[in-house]
Design a binder for these strands. Sequence first.
DNA 1: GATGAATGAGTGTTCATTCAT
DNA 2: AATGAATGAACACTCATTCAT
Lengths: 228, 228, 228, 228
Amino acid sequence: MRWASIGGMARPPTSQSPKAQHPSTPGTGRIDKRAAILDAAFQVFARDGYANAAVDAIAAAAGVAKPTVYNHFTDKQTLFREALAADAERALGRNLAVVQRLSDGRGELRSRLEDLGARLIECYADDRSVAVRRLLCAEASTFPEIHSEIREQTGERVVAALADRFAHLVLDGTLRECDPAQAAEQFEALLAGPMEHRSRSGSRKVSAAARRAIAKAAADTFIRAYAR
Amino acid sequence: MRWASIGGMARPPTSQSPKAQHPSTPGTGRIDKRAAILDAAFQVFARDGYANAAVDAIAAAAGVAKPTVYNHFTDKQTLFREALAADAERALGRNLAVVQRLSDGRGELRSRLEDLGARLIECYADDRSVAVRRLLCAEASTFPEIHSEIREQTGERVVAALADRFAHLVLDGTLRECDPAQAAEQFEALLAGPMEHRSRSGSRKVSAAARRAIAKAAADTFIRAYAR
Amino acid sequence: MRWASIGGMARPPTSQSPKAQHPSTPGTGRIDKRAAILDAAFQVFARDGYANAAVDAIAAAAGVAKPTVYNHFTDKQTLFREALAADAERALGRNLAVVQRLSDGRGELRSRLEDLGARLIECYADDRSVAVRRLLCAEASTFPEIHSEIREQTGERVVAALADRFAHLVLDGTLRECDPAQAAEQFEALLAGPMEHRSRSGSRKVSAAARRAIAKAAADTFIRAYAR
Amino acid sequence: MRWASIGGMARPPTSQSPKAQHPSTPGTGRIDKRAAILDAAFQVFARDGYANAAVDAIAAAAGVAKPTVYNHFTDKQTLFREALAADAERALGRNLAVVQRLSDGRGELRSRLEDLGARLIECYADDRSVAVRRLLCAEASTFPEIHSEIREQTGERVVAALADRFAHLVLDGTLRECDPAQAAEQFEALLAGPMEHRSRSGSRKVSAAARRAIAKAAADTFIRAYAR
DNA sequence: GATGAATGAGTGTTCATTCAT
DNA sequence: AATGAATGAACACTCATTCAT
């Protein structure tokens, strides 16, 4: 999945009023703050973009003083990198779990692919996912390394996992002889491309029905092209 | 085409030394300057992103003084919008011309699709194209209207033109009964998705061979799925 | 004179209310501002030291906005350098004029030396002189070049001028055969050393009587050591 | 002595790895730390100046945590004062010892003065001495009291001791009738002035030969002016 | 119409200082 | 007594934007 791979689940509501909250478990304070900052950073970066995101705003959102941010992360850049990475990690797990289902599924190929597609689209449409793609794309020239890192940690691995599933399906005769990597890449494209198109790069919501239709169409085209 | 639609041709070498150049035709000076500013703006925005692009830098690149920029374009935002729009217009023509070839072509379906795919990928890989996609994506939340405007002027119309071609192919029996719009959307996705993947959102070059392979694979899958 | 060479005259009262003052001579505005900034910078640096001097404060003192300061001088460092240099130039003239008097004087050697000493001490005790020495000394390790530059432009040349006068006095038999450079260095030391001592590096005033006494003592010792 | 009076001896190598060193005598730990901090503070202040010296850096250099510094010294200011005072105390001893030699010496006046001068110049040229003078001068307006305190503890007393020696020399007829305090002040000036000049306020080294020459010249002038 | 100069608002970053442990 | 973590206050520097010419 180009970007679908970077899905995200709703993050736990961390940043509470800093004074009101006396950390339940002593010693967790540091970690709490670090997590709160990462989370706030992600939200602010997502909302304002890298350049427009004020560290002040991030600190405020995290319920922390500005220097505390710099205490945990040396730089605005570093904070950016780590915030994205943290989110990417969460997303990776979610995406891989979805792909795994393909092998576990017992049903007919078509329904299994439709289901897989629908779930990957869900990941792709997730707000945090959209935000990460935007940020990565926007800062691709400023932070080329981030882009590579995160993509390798997520997108690559998801497509690879997908390719692995397809390879099995080739072996057991469900799919025709083909390059599983290419098949995976195309399956992902058939999901993400139309979604990107319809959602206008994530700037408008796509109805559940439309999402389902995209998954159906992708599965249909894929089966026509690859099923034995 | 999601973004491939926004291809660009090399723009004419505009920004010359401001003092050295005395506009040949008197009265053209204003227009010259306006064009020079638009061009410089595009380059600087493309290089630095919206937020990081200094109006100073744009003015310098255009060989004008900063207030001159503000005389022609009220805002940095306006300048951004117009610079992108100017580029999009150029790109649209190029893309439509490419799509038109599909109907003119006389050869076999496969080779015509491969050719079309290769040319669209060329548009997609063009530096200015990449830059526009990046900028649109990056500022999608800041300027949602821009995104829609430009997409409608370019992407939409290109996919529509493609759908129109496919509709003809359905009528003449080359393609099976299907929704031409969906077919167009998917064909575009099969080209753009893998390109985006391989080029890491345009941050690394994709070899000509690889591009050709993507076009071939897209045509192959498309034919298997849609040819009668 | 070690530092006495860097005397200063009261600078003309430049920085007036910026709004109230419409530059009498049109076109002088830029220069006015530049001078006002230099002057304000000197005062603030002198009062607070380099590190503690806020550019904000300098701008305010000059009746200018902060960016205007950066418009005229790229850096805080540059501003510092130029402010000191500007002052040093003024001081040099004053010191050289004083030394020149030695040759013009017609009276007895002792009274001429006492007079010279007293005038050099006046230069040395000048507030701006004290400030420059402090700043140079304080930032000697941060801006080693400044130190050299200014010293060469001032201190060196004053001692050299003094040596030149003494050389003449050797030739006309007023002073015994000796190294005029060394004599100049020592004469300066006999003035500046006790002044530095008594004024506690310029942090307390030395009475006019005490200053006169120092000059007298220096002249006396010098004559005993060097007069024929 | 203006500043020559503030000489320094190499301070014992205090700051060891804080963890590795378990104070041999229990209970000495506090004192060890205090000394380590003072020493580190001196070094950092000397290197960076007062304003630029980070308490962080001092703590690190001393192998302690920042709050430990604040436990021992309430303020950055206090730390500064005490660090300078500690160094001054060491220097005083050294300088007085040098002056004492004048009376013990048995040789001819000239050689004794030359020797005294050379030794005082040695003190004056010492790195820590140079640093202290710089710091005192730099912060003279910020901490006027420090300046007085330290000068009284060192400079004053050294000049006084010198004056005392000279008084004896007047009594035993070696020197002519004169004000011994003034003689002392001038002798010191003849040493320190040229040194300051030649070393460009301590920012470049002065060769041993040049130092010797300065001492010789000072002794010569002094003898011409004050010997019977 | 074009410009040199000026500015108000804001940004990232640092530092002396203080709690809670 | 010593520390890790947190903070409020500043500060250098930049930028989009506007006058006066």
